[in-house]
Structures are given as structure tokens and as C-alpha cells.
Simulated assay, not measured.
Amino acid sequence: MGEVRSTGRLAATLGSLGLVAGALLIAGSRHWLPTGLPSPPAQDAGEVRAAPHVAVYDMRPGQPARRIAEDIIAPPPLDASGIERIEPRRPLGELGLASPPKTPMPQDWGETLLYRPVAVSSSMFEAMGRKVVISGTADVGPDRTCAFGDAVWPCGQRARAAFNAWMRGRALKCLLPPDADRFAIAAPCTLGKQDVGAWLVANGWAMASPSGIYGKAESVAREARMGIFGPPQ
């Protein structure tokens, strides 16, 4: 009889423990954790949280980026007060230098077409009431004579005739001031695309002025004995 009573009491005790454990698992929403571990914080229904061991970074727009090895990858801080501005390096050659500006002509000067020009001398002509000397040239007067060997000939008249024959009454374009009709003026002129002064000096019908640009053309004409530097024509 004693064994039967002990077995009944043990079964009743185990049954009571099972009912208590089932009640704890079903009735509550809390988990049974081992002793010594902290309980996780409560969270709202539907909220998703990352695992505690995963690092979370805010990648929303406008948030600062995460910095990695800033002392190695990023440039070090720079103190602007320690920067010194120095003069730029000179060009390696003269080709790198800017050319000086050309001397501008006065504002009231302009290109003017002069029709039906007539040569007065080897490098001077009249047209439309104006008298123009070709700039950069030294005129050979119509009364001048030239000597070549034993021959003396009227090179001044011949030079004027050569100038007239070359122009043939065609209009010359000259750079003139508006009041050039009041006096004779030296001006650069062109006939079409040809420089009048260059043609006169290169063919020996005028000489280059000391301050002009036709010095080389005169040297060529002298060596070739052209115009006034050659035999009678």
C-alpha cells in the first residue's frame, strides 16, 4: 500500500509542474531566458530591429558619410596662413612672351578710295583734290637725272611715267585723316591687294626712307640694277 501511495504522489507532483509550465508558456508573451542574461527591450508590433551584433549606419540623403582611416586617406588639415604666393616662372623662350600692342591709328583716320590718281613724281600722286606721298619711300623728283656708266638720263621723269603706267587711273585705297585735302600727307596705300610703296621701291622707281620698312627691297633693286639704279630706260 505504501508504494502505491508514493507513486500517486509523484505523479500528482509532476502533473502540477507540467500545468504550471504550460500556463507560463501560453499565458505570457515573454520568453524564458537563462539566468544572468539581460532581457531585450520591448518593441512595438510590426517594428523590425537589426541584430545587436550588426553595425547600423544612417545612409539617408543629407547625412554625413562614414569616415575610414581619415589620418591616412583624407588630406591633412592645411593652415592657409602658412601659404606664400610667389611670382610666376618666366617663359622658357621669347616665343612665350606676348607681343607688344601695335600703335593704333587715330580714331578719325580711315581707308579712303581715291579715284583717277595721277602721279606728280615717282612716289607722289594727286586724286580727288588730295595730294598723297606714299609713306616709307623717298621721292625721286621729276627733274632728277641719273648716271649709268657714261650715260646720263632723266630718271626722275622716267620714274613718274612708270608710276602712272602702273596705276592706269585705277583707284588707290589709302589710310587718310578727314582733312587730308588741306595739305600733302604721307600715307600707306594699296592698289587692290598690292602695297604701292613696296612695288615702287622693289622696281627701283623710288628709294626707301631711312625710317621706312622698304630697306631690303631697295637693296634688291640696287643689286639687280632696276629702275633708277640701272641703265637708261
Rank of each mutant, 00 (worst) to 15 (best):
M1C: 05
M1F: 06
V4G: 09
L10G: 08
A11K: 09
L17S: 07
L19Y: 03
L19Q: 06
A23F: 13
L25A: 15
G28T: 13
S29W: 04
H31S: 14
W32E: 08
L33Q: 01
T35H: 12
P38W: 00
P40Q: 08
P41H: 03
A42T: 12
A42M: 07
V48A: 12
A51D: 15
P52A: 13
V56T: 13
V56W: 09
A65K: 07
R66L: 15
I68K: 03
E70R: 12
E70C: 03
P76N: 01
A80G: 07
S81H: 12
R90G: 03
R90A: 14
G96I: 07
A98M: 11
K102C: 04
Q107H: 03
W109H: 05
G110F: 04
E111W: 15
Y115C: 00
S121W: 06
E126P: 00
G129K: 08
K131R: 15
V133R: 12
I134R: 07
G136F: 05
V140W: 02
P142C: 03
D143C: 01
D143T: 09
R144L: 08
T145A: 10
A147T: 15
W153L: 06
R160I: 00
F163V: 05
F163K: 04
A165W: 00
M167I: 15
R170K: 13
A171D: 10
P177G: 08
A180D: 15
D181I: 04
R182N: 11
A186K: 09
A187R: 00
T190Y: 12
L191Y: 05
Q194M: 10
G197A: 14
G197E: 06
W205Q: 05
W205D: 08
S209N: 11
P210Q: 03
S219H: 00
A221P: 12
A224N: 14
